[in-house]
Design a protein around this nucleic acid. Sequence first.
DNA 1: ATAATATTGCAAGGCTGTCGCATTAATATA
DNA 2: TATATTAATGCGACAGCCTTGCAATATTAT
Lengths: 124, 124
Amino acid sequence: MKRRQTPTKSAVLDVLTKAGKAMSQNAIEQEIPIDINRATIYRVLNRFCDDGILHKVIAEDGKQYFALCDRCDDTHKQHQHYHFKCTVCETLECLPSEVSFSIPQGYVVENVNCVLTGVCKNCA
Amino acid sequence: MKRRQTPTKSAVLDVLTKAGKAMSQNAIEQEIPIDINRATIYRVLNRFCDDGILHKVIAEDGKQYFALCDRCDDTHKQHQHYHFKCTVCETLECLPSEVSFSIPQGYVVENVNCVLTGVCKNCA
DNA sequence: ATAATATTGCAAGGCTGTCGCATTAATATA
DNA sequence: TATATTAATGCGACAGCCTTGCAATATTAT
């Protein structure tokens, strides 16, 4: 299935690029200049994830956040860095700190989701 | 507000103790012998969290899982250990591995939520 | 026993995310 | 340029998770 260029895709990518942080579907919809259906935004976001352009983080509110991370299109497919969710400004950003853990024998890790919650530099 | 002893509270604690792992409201409700309202289970679980008896983990499905962890009533209030969610048996368990990270200056971390997803020892 | 109030059940509602289906629009082909 | 192919979208609907208000119940203290 070959991807097509659409206004929706560019608009979503544009918002995420300018934001420089992870955003929820809702936040993206509010920031986007054109009117795009909710389901469509989700589909666009998930396609971007499939294509390795975005990565998805689950925050402590149980919601999905999507980020365009500069360190993501590297060798490892997994996004093994920490994320920080500020309870004040609701921002979710990627941290430079890499996740490292030891796992008991026999376990196979396929995905990593690490979110620190608190107050960010700007809001402190 | 002083807590009261109720059959619901004991039943919930009992299930979680026997399970020895983190469980969702739904899973708890299914395991519980008596019939308890969904909202009530949530209220009981959240009260236990407030009282420091349980801790809550958000998994990659966006759902809340509650665990009675043996290492939790220690000095630190935060539950800074990794969790492992098996995609096969759907189990979410606490790992012995402690979470360690470096955080940029000015950030205040109040909570940690780290979940590894994959296949556990039993299902591999 | 009685009062005070924490806990519960019920119903309802909000929010998130997904899906099927008809329609539209982007790309390839003639 | 016109046409065919099919990816992408909008709409509506739905399921699931979690919370909340309110009246009824049950636990604890007096």
